[in-house]
């Protein structure tokens, strides 16, 4: 017997799984929901607010000339010194265990065994981390601008927007790098500790040692590239190479070299870090096994 009706029913019942891009945004949506309910988002928000409140109080009370001489120096002092720290903290908080946590906490089994590409999970989580970090930065910046408007009026120097654009690229690069490290380890603790050590200590130390003592431009260090975020407030833009000769007495001198990444160089380094670390992280996550 030919049962056309049954056949039609079966064909209609063919399961329609959303496309990979749609699934990516589904992951992003639920991951953001997760972040907003998490303590880490709240803690990071509080840290950002504390920095803002401290600067508001100190500048209001002591009125330091280094901040109040011009709007440029104000934003340079406020944003230039703090935003990279907030970005690094965001990468540690949101990126440090983003992938390793899926293995350690076994949450990966809940998602990865479904009909979804692993790349959708990875990128979806990355976008969620980026959005959560970006929100923290925006809140921090909103308070900064409110202070700036109070002291210097509504004319905001365009260097602030340039600095913000560089910060966004830096955030992408730092998160990409944190995700890469997170995909290397199955332990959240390892991936978080290594991210902390690299961004808060190791990169800065290596940069200092090789530029000042060895005299090599640290073009391969991401924190070196981040210098453009604060240097953009300096007019004219700092020289690429600054050599300082210090006289130590008795005819002896100490020559130290300081490098400043040019804007194009900084952007290329950040983009390079973002692209390479994302490709590597994706590749590792695709190959990793949920044992």
């Amino acid at each position: 017997m030919i049962d056309m009706e049954t056949m039609n029913v079966d064909i209609n019942q063919e399961k329609k799984i959303p496309g990979s891009i749609d699934q990516l945004f589904i992951i992003t949506k639920f991951e953001i929901l997760n972040y907003f309910r998490s303590r880490r988002f709240l803690i990071l928000l509080i840290i950002g607010l504390i920095i803002d409140l401290l600067l508001t109080g100190i500048i209001g009370y002591y009125r330091p000339q280094s901040f109040l001489s011009s709007s440029l120096s104000f934003y340079s002092g406020w944003v230039g010194q703090s935003i990279t720290f907030i970005i690094i903290l965001s990468a540690i908080f949101f990126g440090g265990d983003s992938i390793s946590g899926e293995f350690q906490n076994k949450t990966g089994f809940f998602i990865a065994s479904r009909p979804i590409r692993r790349s959708s999970i990875y990128i979806g989580k990355w976008i969620a981390s980026f959005i959560a970090s970006f929100l923290i930065i925006i809140i921090f910046l909103a308070i900064t601008i409110a202070n700036g408007v109070y002291y210097f009026g509504a004319s905001i120097p365009y260097e602030l927007w340039e600095s913000l654009a560089f910060s966004i690229l830096y955030l992408a690069a730092v998160l990409g790098f944190a995700f890469f490290f997170s995909s290397l380890f199955k332990s959240s603790a390892y991936s978080i500790i290594i991210t902390v050590i690299l961004f808060l200590f190791a990169f800065n130390l290596i940069q200092l040692l090789i530029s000042s003592l060895v005299g090599i431009e640290p073009w391969f260090i991401i924190t070196y590239a981040s210098g453009i975020i604060s240097n953009i407030f300096t007019v004219p833009f700092p020289a690429h190479v600054v050599t300082t000769v210090t006289h130590l007495g008795h005819g002896r001198t100490l020559t130290t070299t300081t490098y400043n990444a040019t804007i194009s160089e900084g952007l290329i380094i950040m983009a390079g870090y973002f692209i390479i670390s994302t490709i590597l992280g994706l590749f590792i996550f695709e190959k990793r096994e949920f044992n």
Binding site: R37, N105, K106, T107, F109, F110
Partner: peptide, 20 residues
């Protein structure tokens, strides 16, 4: 994706995101 489109699995005891 296609292979698992009509297949569901429960492997070990997965953890679900605790805040959900």
């Amino acid at each position: 994706k296609k292979a698992l489109s009509d297949c569901s699995a429960l492997i070990e005891t997965p953890e679900i995101y605790p805040s959900m």
